[in-house]
Every structure is written in C-alpha cells, then in structure tokens.
C-alpha cells in the first residue's frame, strides 16, 4: 500500500455570505487524487464539507475546483504531482456564485445552452431513417463531443471570470457546443448571427486559457473558436465573401 504521510489542505469553507480557508491534515498514500483526500477529510473531520462529485474517473465533470489556483478536476489531480511541502489550497470555481464550500451554482451554463438553436438534420439519406457520414468528416465534431461539461473553461475564461460578461458572452463551453452543431455534417441550421450577436464570440481574445485547462484535451481555441470566428468573418465582415454571395443566391 505504501506509506501514509500527512499533508495539509487549505480548503475554502463558507457560503455566499462569507467564509475562510480552513486547514485540514490527512494521510496520503500512493496513487491518491485530491478528491480522495477531500473524501477522507469528510469522513474523518468535516462530514458537512460540501463537494460535488460523481464518477471519480474524469468522465462526468462534476468535481471541478481550483487546486493551488489552477482550475482542475479533483478526481484527476494526483497527489504525487503536487508540492505537498506547503499546504495544498482548494478553492471553489471563482466564476460562478458560491453555494457552499467547494460547490458553486453552475446553472447559468444550462440556461445559455438552451438558447442556442438546436440540431436540425437534413432529410435522412436512407429509407430506414439513417444517414451516411464519412468517418473523416465526423472526427472534427467528435472532438467537441468529448466535452464533459466540467465548466473549467468557463471558470478560467477571463471574459467571464474577471469581466463578468455572463449575460451576453456564452463562454468556451458553448462555443464548442455551437461548433459541434455548426460543423455537424447533417446540420442545416445557421447559428452565425447568434454567435456574433447573442453569444458575442467577439469578446473572446483567444488567450487559450480554456484549451490549457480542458481535462479532455479538446483544442477549444484552435479547433472550435477560431474556425467559428472565421465563419463569422465570412458571413458578416469579409466584403469579398459578401460580394460573392450576391452572385451565388440560394446558398443559405
């Protein structure tokens, strides 16, 4: 099992009205992740320490937090990759309203998603209601569909985190979501106007923090946001493509 060594965790305790960091010390053994430590603290000394989690295997995206200031999944952060000679800080995500301790209210994200126009496929290709798509064409979309909705990208995005453009800026998660719909081989909906004026993709200044924190290693900025920005340019800003459209009616 390996030896157990004591590590101190500095965990945020409190709710919307206030709170403070509190120190807890617990024994760490080989292979433990931060979430294990939090569970151990719950079982040993703080049964009411609020912490959202679910699968504990990096697949559901529930246990998002900021470990030593970095947005990460607690279940995928191994203790042996953290410097434990000093206390390990665990904070809730800073971009969303706090409920209690490590749990934040992420419901805003669900509201945003609802407003994005839904998938609208073309007519089925085959009599049994199915479609034909090439693997090469679906791969681009499949990357975005790996998203586990942990909202770490939303947390780290300074447009939300610092500038609080929550109502008008939908954030990286919803750009991947939109990209996945827009680039879907079957989709016939047009969301470019929405991207420009409701999701305000123009607020993004491509500093790529979202890509850096993504636990699913989705290349959010280069593969989703920038291609969407380019499509928005085609539609709204590029005089040449606009000119071409006049001569090529019926494309949209």
């Amino acid at each position: 099992m390996g030896e157990s060594r004591d590590v101190t965790f500095r965990v945020w305790r409190g709710d919307a009205s206030g709170g403070a960091l509190k120190d807890y010390t617990t024994g760490i053994t080989t292979g433990m992740v931060v979430l294990d430590a939090v569970h151990q603290i719950q079982a040993e000394s703080a049964p009411d320490l609020a912490c959202r989690w679910n699968c504990k295997a990096g697949k559901c995206g529930s246990c998002s937090a900021e470990i030593n200031g970095k947005p990460r999944l607690m279940c995928m952060t191994r203790m042996d990759e953290i410097d434990t000679s000093v206390p390990v800080t665990i904070l809730p995500m800073q971009t969303f309203p706090l409920i209690r301790d490590l749990v934040t209210d992420v419901s805003w994200n669900y509201e945003v998603k609802k407003r994005i126009k839904k998938f609208r496929p073309r007519k089925p290709d085959n009599a049994d209601g199915s479609w034909n798509m090439a693997q090469a064409d679906v791969e681009r979309v499949q990357e975005f569909r790996k998203c586990i909705e942990c909202f770490l990208c939303q947390d780290v995005c300074h447009v939300l985190r610092e500038h609080e453009r929550h109502p008008e800026f939908s954030g990286p998660r919803h750009f991947i979501y939109t990209a996945q719909l827009e680039m879907h081989p079957l989709d016939t909906e047009d969301r470019l106007g929405q991207l420009k004026d409701e999701q305000n993709i123009g607020y993004c200044n491509i500093t790529k923090c979202c890509t850096k924190v993504c636990p699913e290693h989705i290349t959010i900025t280069d593969n989703a946001i920038i291609p969407l920005k380019e499509r928005v340019v085609d539609e709204f800003y590029d005089p040449m493509t606009r000119l071409f459209r006049i001569f090529k009616p019926g494309k949209k």
Binding site: A16, G18, G19, E66, G69, D83, P92, Q94
Partner: peptide, 17 residues
C-alpha cells in the same frame, strides 16, 4: 470570496507556480 470578484485585482491569483 464570496464569488465572482475573485480574479479582479491586477495580478491577483491563488496560483503558486
């Protein structure tokens, strides 16, 4: 904390790296 003003403040961060 409480929330949503956390990152505000030039160079403020909980990052230790």
């Amino acid at each position: 904390l409480p929330q949503r003003r956390a990152g505000v403040g030039f160079l403020k961060t909980a990052r230790g790296d």
